[in-house]
Design a protein around this nucleic acid. Sequence first.
DNA 1: TCAAAAGTGTTCACCGTACACCCATGG
DNA 2: CCATGGGTGTACGGTGAACACTTTTGA
Lengths: 239, 239
Amino acid sequence: MLNTYNSEDKVLVAVDCIIFGFDKKDLKVLLIKRDFEPEKGKWSLMGGFMKKDETLDQAATRVLYRLTGLHDIYMEQLYTFSKVDRDPKDRTISVAYYALINIETHNQELIEKSSAKWFSIAQAPELIFDHTRMVEHAISRLRSRASTKPIGFELLPDKFTMKQLQELYEAIFDKELDKRNFINKVNSLDILIKLDEKDKTSSKKGSYLYTFDEVKYNKKVLDGFLFKPVPYVLHPNNR
Amino acid sequence: MLNTYNSEDKVLVAVDCIIFGFDKKDLKVLLIKRDFEPEKGKWSLMGGFMKKDETLDQAATRVLYRLTGLHDIYMEQLYTFSKVDRDPKDRTISVAYYALINIETHNQELIEKSSAKWFSIAQAPELIFDHTRMVEHAISRLRSRASTKPIGFELLPDKFTMKQLQELYEAIFDKELDKRNFINKVNSLDILIKLDEKDKTSSKKGSYLYTFDEVKYNKKVLDGFLFKPVPYVLHPNNR
DNA sequence: TCAAAAGTGTTCACCGTACACCCATGG
DNA sequence: CCATGGGTGTACGGTGAACACTTTTGA
């Protein structure tokens, strides 16, 4: 019988998190030096195993909290990796999640305690198992998301300059953008609030600070701006 | 210790397949009437459990073959569902796959033996567990794929008319399209071969049959048409 | 000869892109 | 007063969307 619940086929389900941050001009990933076997001493993504009484989202949230001390992180399931020998110690599958955090707000102590470190994407070391593929996958996803929705506010401080926002997009797409076109585009979206404050750290004139207007943004998402993301709903009257 | 390989947390990993087909003017899903517990007698997706010595892709391929008798099916991993009580019998997680098949080529006997049936999307019955959500998710993904790559040739017979191709897109997006714009667009992609044959079943004049030009298509995918799908590769010199 | 489906082009609005100069200020 | 980064507008080409009439042929 093919549909039996055969407990011999039970496996461990790992959750691995690709944690993105942005600092100055660089898109970064948070990696840890493993202090346990297998592959002790090598760099890897932050991960853990899903417990029998939690969902994958809960497991990912738990892992992220353990490393960063942050709740309410922007997080999304990516893909499930299942090569039979991906983990030499035991048969596992791993569900990859990616997360976007403001690099200034996380808990520095926790990170040090976990021997974690931020790496610029281009300078990331080789990772254990299939973790390098996971990071590549996450960057692709981050790019396609950033093309359709204004992502990235999660990665910046509350107040930021247009320059910073532009540099973030340049880092995500690894491509230089035209200043005027970028600003025109962002302004046409009408989701930023221009503050009266200026940031004078990088020039004599100073540049205006902006914040993200969540109310307008949420309204736009519902109305479907950029693409219209028509979700398909079956049995809409019966949910 | 948080990173232990604790075998108490091992779970069964299901694979559920959303199998799409296209017939006349309707996008369809293949569903089975369960002849086993739990939820015996109800409609569900075709599924099975991943074995300890196979990958998820292999499990999905096996499940699809069991139901359709087909190899080399277009298939893609969708998302992993993990609500703790999603399956009342035992703790499981389920990795959803969607597949596109030509509705004329599958093995009719196998389908009947599995008490499976094709349903138009709009008339699909309520499904067990979280399967309805899986189908919704699959349709959303199918739409976003169909917006970026010409998908759909998998769903049509080898030779097809422009009308059929248009009706397929209309079914996927649940939206009427303009005949002239559609044809112009498809022709500008330059991935079809116009045959000398005509299909006379639906009109006196007859309409030309086309086939999909795989060589040109693959070349275009590599060159990146529509979107440029810049995949991100870490350590490109070291793979 | 006529009903029924197939086939075929043009116009217009909008969006993405390329591109260069003046402004404000602290040192 | 000048060097440094900040801020601003326009012109052009290409793409997506709207739109209607002629052709073929079997009944």
